[in-house]
Nucleic acid binder design. Structure first.
Lengths: 186, 186, 186, 186
DNA sequence: CATGAATGAGTGTTCATTCAT
DNA sequence: GATGAATGAACACTCATTCAT
């Protein structure tokens, strides 16, 4: 029953609770109770509460980093941008609880050292997607595209529709926005 | 010394701190300290911590309610939708700290009774802006328009540009999105 | 509406709430709310919370004091004792909320300066009722008689019976106890 | 230093303080100070303040429950009733601080969920002791017998006499009362 | 690997009381 | 006679964290 997977189970439960209730409102006691271990056990696997969050980040943002790295090697064409969005969309599906969490806990994360980390990443994504000297409105379009993809999923959760259809719709809008921004500039 | 403005001052400080640090991480002690009164004084003016938040909401969402009411009396034309966005943009400027707060504290607010209240309002805004039987992508466009307006301001804070210019750019993108969604349907 | 009877109304409400919830658990805020005045208003009429309680005592124990005074002037016969109990029974009916309060809040009153006052009175009642050199069991009988009268009313509250019948039954038992104690001694 | 007896020590100190000062007026800080631990330590052993009280109850009312159970299996004779009172008297000696506490904190306990529990138990004791269709006065006698036993000890505390003698005197009066109630009915 | 026991700092909240008006 | 505004001290309770075993 108690295999060496405890660390993983802590991460799973923590992510679920963090996403559902927020980071601040989720106590280690609660996590421990769900896992049916003591709080002290958590401290065997993680140095602090924040450490659990950091570990979630590291596991889940790797795909995002890889995508950014890939994007950097590509030419700045519209096709590349579209492909980046497509890949990003798939990344988001896989890591959706984390992104939901980040979307909804921005304030809580501000001083968590990770905040900057994530903002940085967003900025680098933005660099890949927008033209260097884009007009203000086009910059907004690119930001909006990213935001739309982040928020899209859970805002649409109430809506009755096939999840994959929703994802495609969100992706379509994002690609549209970036395309307009690209087109206008050239 | 003790003028009748204490209640107002509490609201001001609370909003500032809530927006900056998040609701959970802002303690009443902190608010009281900034105001140089005791915690108990806060309780003379507000029944609970949540009550302070609620009062902020009520003061700041009134313009939004009035806008929704006005929208309901208008014909569902593109011009109306654009005018709604224009007015909404102005509303948001006035209440921007509150909207920043809401944007960044969604998790914290989930069970705060107000969450639903606000979600409702967003849904009603959405009804004014989207066509009843719009395609999925067009619905996303309308949602994205609202989100863009909410988030736009503080996401752009780092960017060096005239605030009014930024607002106009955000508004332009939002109007674009809604126009596309409108156009497609007809 | 607001006549000079506020002091009286405070006493009435306070007694009711003290009896119902206990002294400690009844706050001045609560009393003030029931009366629809501010807490500060209570302080116009009474120096402290304890003062309210003291005033209730003074108003309601006067009959008891008079009874004790009368008893002192009478011969120590069984008839006198029985008459004392009869009169005491009537006194108790009139002041029943206060006695219920005292019965149920002994701990709370211990250090309230009044505790002693009341214990004293009980002792003086006891002197009137028991023989000076009574056997231990007879002393217990007399104490039991007083206790029975105090507690009788509210313990019997659930029981379906005419209140006056209950009072008579309680009185009968008390008289019996004291009579036995009297008889045994002589 | 930290042996496994902390829980027990908390109960001991709590009972002593509750009995002495009342439940409401005894703070967890005070209990913790006497034990020379932090308040938080109390919360490791008990979920709430009320929980401490409940645990005291459960430990101390078990003998009473056993007595009631035993009484149920016996014939409803006068001898049985007398034996019940005798056993009850011994039970009370062992748990006297708790009973003193209950006697003096009735108001405080009213809404403590345990109030009813205890009232129930008293009622079941009463059933064992009184005749089913007893006259009102005889019912009062039985109630009075129980009350006398409860209150007897601490009311007599001031009186200079051997504790065991006092207990016997109280028991004698209680048996007398129940006997009279029994006799009258048959 | 994990627990039992505990801590120190903090939380939101309530209270009796005061006092200028 | 009474209020509005505030205080200081306390309260029950929770939290992340530690450490010997």
């Amino acid at each position: 029953m108690a295999r060496g997977n405890t660390r993983q189970r802590i991460q799973d439960v923590a992510l679920e609770l963090f996403a559902e209730q927020g980071y601040e409102k989720t106590s280690l006691r609660e996590i421990a109770e769900v896992l049916d271990v003591t709080k002290a056990a958590l401290y065997y696997h993680f140095k602090t509460k924040e450490d659990i969050l950091i570990s979630l980040f590291q596991d889940l943002t790797r795909p995002m980093d890889e995508l950014i790295e890939w994007g950097r090697t590509q030419p700045h064409t519209l096709e590349t941008k579209q492909e980046i969005l497509r890949r990003y969309s798939e990344t988001l599906v896989a890591a959706s609880p984390l992104f939901r969490f980040m979307q909804e806990n921005q304030a809580a994360m501000r001083d968590l050292s990770i905040g900057e980390t994530f903002k940085d990443r967003m900025m680098r994504m933005l660099e890949l997607i927008k033209e260097p000297e884009a007009a203000l409105a086009d910059q907004v379009r690119c930001i909006s595209a990213l935001f739309t993809m982040h928020a899209g999923m859970f805002v649409l959760r109430d809506m009755e529709a096939d999840p994959e259809d929703k994802r495609q719709a969100v992706l379509e809008v994002a690609i549209d926005l970036v395309s307009q921004a690209h087109h206008v500039t050239h």
